[in-house]
Amino acid sequence: MKTIWHNLKEVLINTFDYLGLAWWVEIVTQNPRCTYYFGPFLSSSDAKLSSTGYIEDLEVEGAQGIAVNVKRCKPNTLTIADDLGEKIDRKVQPTFGGQILS
């Protein structure tokens, strides 16, 4: 039953993402000046729950001035490095890494 729910949830997330209705974690750091998008998620609560791990990872990497926003969006670029004046597009398919499925 878990596998069926996992597959259904993945289809729903991909559909919501395609329509721009999926939830994403947007994290903006002041040092380095970057914007990161993590997702997509089916619900805002799933995104908020996962944001803790993303914040911890960035803190370990030395990021400072971290602001978090959970919102519905459809980001074109998943990492924007303002300090470097470039956009880094992590071509990653959702694998649900870091997400807790119930």
Rank of each mutant, 00 (worst) to 15 (best):
L12G: 13
S102P: 06
R90H: 09
V28I: 14
T77M: 09
G53M: 00
N69D: 14
V70S: 08
L19I: 04
T3N: 06
Y54G: 05
V60Y: 00
L58Q: 03
S45D: 12
K91D: 15
M1E: 06
K71Y: 09
K71D: 02
K87M: 09
A81S: 11
I88S: 08
V25L: 03
Q93M: 07
A67K: 05
V11S: 15
W23N: 08
I13P: 00
I100N: 06
Q64A: 12
L21I: 04
D57S: 13
W23Q: 04
F16T: 13
Q93F: 10
T95S: 04
Y36A: 01
I88M: 09
L8S: 12
L49T: 01
K2S: 09
E61S: 13
G20M: 11
F38M: 04
K91E: 13
T15H: 12
Q93D: 10
W24Y: 10
I88G: 10
E59C: 11
G20P: 01
H6N: 11
A47G: 04
T77K: 12
E26I: 03
C73R: 10
L49D: 08
R90V: 11
I27V: 13
P32A: 12
V92L: 10
D83F: 02
K71L: 15
G39T: 01
T52W: 01
Q93L: 14
D89F: 14
D82C: 15
T15G: 07
T3C: 03
I27Y: 00
I4L: 06
I100L: 06
S51Y: 03
A47H: 00
G20H: 05
C34L: 11
I80F: 04
P75H: 08
T35E: 15
P94D: 13
I13N: 08
V25W: 07
L78W: 14
A67L: 02
T3D: 11
Q99D: 06
V28P: 02
A63Q: 08
T3G: 09
N14D: 15
K48T: 04
V68L: 06
D57M: 07
N69K: 15
V25Q: 02
Q99C: 07
D46H: 09
